[in-house]
Design a protein around this nucleic acid. Structure first.
Length: 520
DNA sequence: AGCCTTTGACCAGCG
DNA sequence: TCGCTGGTCAAAGGC
């Protein structure tokens, strides 16, 4: 069993202790000109880009509120000072892939981001822009299935889903593991990827079906939630539990979900269908039920109007015997999913089509959940990383079945339909992901808002001043080891009680739980 | 018949 | 101890 040191090593191989989203994307794209940005361009909400989803590019000064270069440099220094992450030197211009290659001694295929560029790149200068525009055909899930989000043994072969395999790495034991995302168990499924002679590059293939979602229609219920985080967490669990007798080997012929990307495509399409249903019929329940199942069956066992939530929260259990997976779902009055919190990992393969497919409200939930559970699907013993991390607080029963002693960690990405990364009033990655319970406020700051509130009349600078407290909540959930996926509008208004307002238009709020250490 | 959702009640944790 | 809150149970009814 790996200890906490292992975890740190895992994490450290891949990212700074407090990686900022921009560095995160920088790593993804192999561009690490992270600290060199001066003044960030105003976020661009491309209204003409037929729904192109704009993420900040690697150069985006996410921490713009506090982010002058000095501070960025200070952050970098902090990163350097954290000994176990010594390889993450801010001076390094090498991208993640290059670092991987350097470390592993192979030529890591570089992520082909050409496809990510908008077709009219020459016009909008997106290619030079600090923003990364995801064209309509490319789902955020696809993007987030980046090399840093690997270890989905269920996903299609790709350097991002972890199906492509990495050669055995001499460093891949203990603190030398290439990353948390590429943790032990998943390594087995990836160990050969870069040995493939022709794998010199990888291009994300956009899914036409995903376009409707990206256009930001009514229903901000994308399935691209925290699939990667689940991947990671799942891998983390497996890493911790690699000696579990019931371990499901990623390489096994396992009738598990087809894959993340494919699943995403499916779910995206389904969501779009849901949207249509909702818009046309107004029957939310029917619209929800119109979505296809994700291979897991869910039974709603409760619903409650929780105080902190505008909308009632529904409780679902996986109907598979002995499967501990549960999920909490909040949805708006219109049926838009505003928050999903998953707990546990499936200890069984997907069950195939829901017996009552097309019936019941769990369907739409499953849409989003599907990608996630596809990650957890090959977890074992019903243990869950979230459960494990829950033990940090021990005040939540979710996941208590896990006896893992792990530190969960994560990156919280909060987004809205523009896809622009927007700094909160103080985005400080170095503190955002610290584990101090008292730093919930920092969690707010640390959330990276893809901020566009859909109202359009509020300047970015004004929005930036806002302090949406919602991420604080999510950070808490994250600390508790729960997967939190929130889809909806962040109003950004301090005075507003509700921060998630799907009724204000297309938007999405994604909480991605990744792999940043919680160091109690 | 089996599985689902709904919904009020119950329970446990917390301040 | 009490009230609040969130999570779960279980009966009832629908599909």
């Amino acid at each position: 069993m790996g200890g906490l040191d292992d975890h740190g090593g895992i994490i450290g191989d891949w990212m700074a202790p407090s990686p900022s989203p921009r560095s995160f994307f920088a790593a993804m794209l192999g561009e690490t000109d992270v600290g060199s940005r001066t003044v960030p361009e105003p976020p661009k909400f491309d209204n003409n880009n037929d729904g192109g989803f704009t993420f900040p590019g690697p150069n985006r000064q996410v921490m713009s509120e506090i982010g002058d270069e000095n501070q960025s440099g200070q952050m970098g220094n902090q990163v350097m000072k954290s000994g176990e992450f010594g390889e993450q030197k801010p001076s390094s211009r090498a991208g993640l892939v290059e670092r991987m290659a350097a470390r592993a001694g192979h030529n890591a295929p570089r992520l082909n981001t050409d496809i990510v560029k908008p077709s009219d790149a020459s016009q909008n200068q997106q290619s030079q822009s600090p923003y990364l525009t995801i064209p309509p055909g490319l789902s955020p899930t696809s993007l987030l299935d980046s090399p840093v989000f690997l270890s989905n043994s269920l996903a299609q072969p790709s350097p991002t889903t972890g199906k492509f395999q990495f050669p055995p790495n001499g460093n891949s034991n203990g603190n030398g593991r290439s990353s948390l995302m590429f943790s032990d168990s998943s390594n087995r499924s990836k160990d050969n990827f870069f040995e493939e002679p022709n794998n010199t590059s990888f291009a994300f293939k956009p899914f036409p079906n995903s376009a409707p979602f990206l256009r930001g229609h009514v229903n901000p219920s994308p399935p691209f939630m925290s699939a990667q985080s689940f991947q990671h967490n799942e891998a983390f669990v497996q890493s911790e539990k690699q000696f579990q007798p019931q371990k499901i080997e990623p390489n096994q012929n396992y009738s598990l979900p087809i894959g993340n990307l494919e699943g995403s495509q499916k779910h995206l399409k389904e969501h779009h269908d849901d949207d249509a249903d909702q818009r046309t019929s107004g029957d939310i329940a029917n619209a929800n039920s119109a979505s296809a199942d994700d291979g897991y069956n869910w039974r709603k066992y409760g619903q409650k109007q929780v105080k902190g939530s505008e909308y009632p929260r529904s409780y679902y259990k996986c109907t598979h015997p002995n499967c501990p997976v549960k999920k909490k779902v909040e949805r708006s009055h219109e049926g838009h999913i505003t928050e999903i919190i998953y707990k546990g990992a499936h200890n069984h393969p997907k069950l195939g089509p829901n017996r009552r497919s097309g019936n019941g409200s769990s369907g739409v939930l499953s849409d989003m959940q599907g990608d996630v559970n596809e990650q957890g699907g090959n977890s074992v013993d019903g243990s869950s990383v979230w459960g494990a991390s829950m033990q940090h607080k021990g005040s939540n029963n979710w996941g208590q079945e896990s006896n893992l002693e792990v530190t969960s960690s994560g990156l919280i990405m909060q987004g809205q339909n523009s896809g622009q990364f927007e700094s909160s009033d103080a985005v400080d990655g170095s503190t955002t992901f610290s584990n101090d319970e008292e730093e919930d406020d920092r969690a707010t700051h640390g959330s990276v808002s893809l901020g566009y509130d859909g109202e359009g009349d509020e300047s970015e600078s004004k929005r930036r001043r806002h302090t949406c407290q919602a991420p604080k909540k999510y950070f808490k959930e994250w600390q508790r080891g729960c997967i939190v996926v929130n889809v909806g509008n962040v109003t950004g208004d301090e005075d507003e009680e509700e921060h998630i307002n799907p009724e204000k238009g297309p938007s999405l709020l994604i909480i991605l739980l990744l792999s940043f250490p919680i160091a109690k």
